[in-house]
Design a protein around this nucleic acid. Structure first.
Length: 402
DNA sequence: AATCCACAGGAAGTGCTGGGCG
DNA sequence: CGCCCAGCACTTCCTGTGGATT
């Protein structure tokens, strides 16, 4: 009898937390973007020549993660293309997903109805098809290259170079670029010729303040959640955590979503600060685990070596050399071929950049110069991320028992 | 002041995959 | 079919370097 009531209650409260969960998902672009009016105005002004059919200048947008760069750009573009869809083609490309010259170009070719196989052709061939496709359309094309730094770091700036000077080759059509990055130093290591072409206009997105984040969360919570399901301190806490992370609005919304998810899963009637804390931990952990799962075998093995050495309690002296030795031992155990120390060194740098480990260069004078490496995440997360890989899970068993 | 360790990290190349094209 | 392409993980060879020791 009590069980039935409990079940009913749980079901009932599940309905109670969310009104429209999808409004909290990260790819949802809301109708209004609070506290970004200025940026919307600036971008719209820059793009306004498109209305009369002339070419807007290329724009370069920078600002930290979650400052609304992508949302504002999509928002403005959506408004524009609704107005002038007969003259303008827009294409949004996320360079983290399309992180090679070839993939960017094939994406562009696709948006001018010249689909291209995902491999096999030379990049210049794809560029030609794109240009022909665009010329056939005879329209203005606005291309958004989001997270453009990923493209350049991965594949160099060849495509950017071509795209910035493409207009001189086009007769019937025009091309405008919008580059977005959260790497504030990105412009510095760009070829000067591209820099001047891409940065005809520049927009800087400042981080959201604590107050602004709270405001955004309130508005969104009102739409996505039912009345009164949030405990008093929940929104301020989400905002405060996100404000510390450079005013990252995406994180703020994700925290709220995950906290509400947890509350709902538990059948709780209200979302509490405790749920937010747990959401925070879960987000961090999932980020790490997902990153580990998609790593190549030898990266995993190096990471495991680091984890073992860190756990053995010989703190403050885990060096590249030691990791390499441990790594070779693991390879021997598995009967797998080893990679060179050069590669291991590179893997260590990659893991450092991902924030999974901390590496700092130290010199022991006579006794050489190396890196000291420390695990920056919990060993449990590492094990969690590694254990789905059947080829190395045998190693995990021997480690946890010893 | 010179030496020399234990690497860092750049440049160029290899071998393989998974696909074109004619 | 043979040849070409891009991308990736990796190798080979390399030059560079902070600072304790000689």
């Amino acid at each position: 009898m009590g069980d039935i009531l409990e079940e009913l209650f749980a079901k009932f409260s599940r309905l109670r937390i969310f009104k429209a969960r999808e409004l909290l998902l990260p790819d949802y672009v809301p109708e209004e973007l609070p506290h970004r009016g200025e940026q919307i105005g600036q971008l719209a002004t820059v793009l306004s020549p498109a209305i009369s059919g002339s070419r807007p200048p290329n724009v370069f947008i920078y600002g930290l993660t979650g400052t609304g760069k992508t949302a504002v750009t999509k928002y403005v573009l959506k408004r524009f293309s609704a107005k002038v869809s007969d003259r303008v083609i827009t294409s949004y490309i996320n360079c983290r997903l399309c992180n090679t010259n070839y993939r960017v170009l094939s994406e562009l070719a696709r948006s001018v109805d010249r689909p291209v196989p995902f491999t096999g052709l030379s990049t210049s061939e794809v560029l030609m098809r794109f240009v022909n496709g665009l010329e056939a359309k005879g329209k203005l094309m606005i291309v958004v290259l989001d997270e453009i730094d990923w493209l350049v770091k991965n594949s160099g700036d060849a495509v950017l170079y071509h795209l910035t000077r493409l207009n001189s080759e086009l007769s019937r059509s025009k091309l405008s670029l919008i580059g977005i990055t959260n790497d504030l130093k990105f412009m510095e290591y760009l070829d000067p010729r591209i820099k001047s072409g891409l940065g005809e206009e520049e927009l800087l997105f400042p981080p959201y303040t604590n107050k602004e984040l709270e405001d955004i969360l309130r508005i969104r919570a009102e739409m996505a959640l039912n009345n009164g399901v949030l405990e008093e301190g929940v929104i301020p806490l989400c905002a405060a955590i996100a404000a510390r992370q450079n005013g990252d609005c995406r994180l703020a919304l994700d925290l709220l979503l995950k906290a509400a998810d947890i509350a709902e899963r538990e059948g709780a009637v209200k979302v509490t600060e405790h749920h937010v804390r747990r959401a925070q931990r879960e987000i961090e952990k999932n980020l790490v685990i997902d990153a580990i799962r998609s790593m190549p075998l030898h990266v995993k093995l190096v990471l495991l070596s680091i984890t073992i050495l860190n756990r053995k309690g010989n703190q403050a002296k885990v060096t590249t050399g030691e990791i390499f030795n441990k790594y070779r031992e693991l390879c021997d155990n598995l009967g797998v071929g080893e990679v060179t120390q050069r590669r291991v060194s590179e893997i260590i740098s990659e893991l450092d950049m991902l924030g999974i480990i901390n590496a700092r260069i130290v010199s022991f004078g006579r006794y050489g110069r190396t890196k000291i490496i420390r695990l920056a995440v919990s060993p449990r997360s590492v094990v969690e991320g590694l254990k789905t890989d059947l080829s190395i899970s045998p190693l995990l068993d021997t480690i946890s028992t010893s």
